[in-house]
């Protein structure tokens, strides 16, 4: 114990250690939960956009042909 380079280890209070570990665990849980929620929302939006993209592409193609002919 006396040969440690920074002196004896500090006795951190159990409340502080409990707080640190519990906040870490809560943070991991909240991060995973929120990530899951947001990625599900984004998947739905992507589906809607893919469907609208077909319609939009058809309209754009039509307008380009009209512009090229006219």
């Amino acid at each position: 114990m006396s040969d440690l380079p920074y002196g004896p280890p500090v006795r951190v209070s159990p409340l502080i250690r409990f707080g640190r570990w519990s906040f870490l665990g809560l943070g991991v849980a909240y991060g995973a939960f929120h990530q899951n929620r947001l990625s599900k929302k984004e998947a739905k939006l992507r589906e809607i956009e893919a469907r609208e993209k077909v319609v939009k592409d058809a309209k754009l193609k039509e307008e380009r042909e009209r512009a090229a002919a006219g």
Partner: peptide, 26 residues
């Protein structure tokens, strides 16, 4: 300072949980 450090561990945990550093990767 001690209280701020304890609260910061929540945000470190959140970065681990969302597996991305800044913001969410959707």
């Amino acid at each position: 300072l001690v209280g701020a450090e304890v609260i910061f561990w929540f945000y470190i945990g959140e970065c681990i949980g969302k597996r991305h550093f800044v913001g969410y990767d959707v």
